[in-house]
Amino acid sequence: MADKIKVALVGIGKIAIDQHVPSIATSDDWELAGTVSRSGTVDGVPAYTDIETMLAERPEIGVVSLCLPPVPRFAYAAACLRAGRHVMLEKPPGATLAEVYALDAMAQNAGLTLFATWHSRMAKGVQAAKAALAGKTIESGHIDWKENVRQWHPKQDWVFDPGGMGVLDPGINALSILTEVLPTPVHLKSAVLHTPANRQTPIRAEMTFSDGITASFDWLKEGIQTWEQRFVATDGTTVHLFEGGNRCSVDGIAQTMSELGEYPALYARMSHLVRTGTSDVDLSPMVHVSDIMTLGRRETAPAFEW
């Protein structure tokens, strides 16, 4: 077996602790060799409080996985690429499309790997849905992506600041699945964005796309959380993805699921990209978010407090 790839995690918050750390720990491909965070650490792993020090002192760390919020991420990613490190980006890959295109150009010019990850594409039922819809024409579809921001982003005000995307932060997960499983691209036709009076980004959104596809995102869902997508093809085939894409049925019949979970699959993909000298920077889910923010009609919602 080839030597493990040394990786540093930047941004030791909830997503890093819940998903990235255990996925690295259980992989035969990876070794968590360092962390960068103002306050978070991982037991037994060398910790740094600034990226430049880590890059200067740890030349053997070849990959940096960025888990911090999207607005400050560009500067960290650019520093890593300038230092000759491969870079893995949490979703969304940046605050703007232009900055991710710039990072992609930097990586290509330096011969480095850049991976814009979409963890929901790695959900266990997504590839079964994609296979069932391959070569078909979509007649209609609907997405319900409804969860409780107080549960998943407790007191994280950045999600409601410019660049935080509001409900489109979880909603982009649904859009990453949509752009993976549909046989042909769709585009936005209209959207309504419900933005709290005291916040900058929406807390609910309704969207209409081409090919008869609609979507409803809600960040105030109490009780059972809902992450579902259903598509109907012109030949009558019905594909239902639920539990965030981790279960799939076709015409009511449960499909065989992939074995790896979302984040282990992301790290397996990153290992392949690094070892083969390639990149994966698909920005189609982020393009939809940009379109929603551009075309969306704003409506004022009640003020939101934690």
Score class of each variant (00 low, 15 high):
G135M: 13
G111N: 09
E147A: 13
N148W: 14
G111E: 11
V126W: 01
I138F: 00
E139T: 08
A123E: 01
E147V: 13
A131W: 07
W152N: 12
W145E: 05
R121F: 08
L114K: 01
M122Q: 00
K136N: 14
S120R: 03
Q151C: 14
A132D: 06
W118K: 03
Q151W: 13
S140V: 05
T113K: 02
F115W: 06
Q151V: 15
A123T: 06
V126E: 01
L133M: 12
E147M: 15
F115S: 05
S120N: 09
S140L: 06
T137S: 12
K146E: 15
V149T: 07
T117M: 11
G141P: 04
E147C: 13
A110V: 03
E147R: 10
K146A: 15
S140G: 10
S120C: 10
A123D: 04
I143Y: 01
V126N: 02
W145N: 00
L133Y: 08
R121A: 04
A132P: 04
T137E: 14
E139P: 08
H119Y: 12
G135Q: 12
A134T: 11
L112H: 00
K124H: 09
A129S: 11
D144T: 10
W118M: 06
I143M: 07
F115V: 08
I143K: 03
K136L: 15
W152Q: 11
Q127I: 11
T117K: 06
A110H: 05
A128W: 01
A110F: 02
G125K: 00
G125L: 05
E139G: 09
W152C: 12
G141Y: 02
R121N: 04
S120W: 07
K124D: 01
L133S: 07
A123Y: 01
A129I: 10
F115M: 09
R150E: 15
T117Y: 05
H119D: 10
I143D: 00
F115T: 04
K124Q: 09
K130L: 14
K146V: 12
L114N: 05
G125V: 03
I138D: 03
V149R: 00
E147Y: 10
T113R: 02
V149K: 01
K130C: 13
A123L: 08
A128H: 00
Q127Y: 11
L114A: 05
A123C: 09
V149M: 09
I138Q: 05
G125W: 03
A129W: 05
L133Q: 07
A110K: 00
H119A: 12
A129R: 06
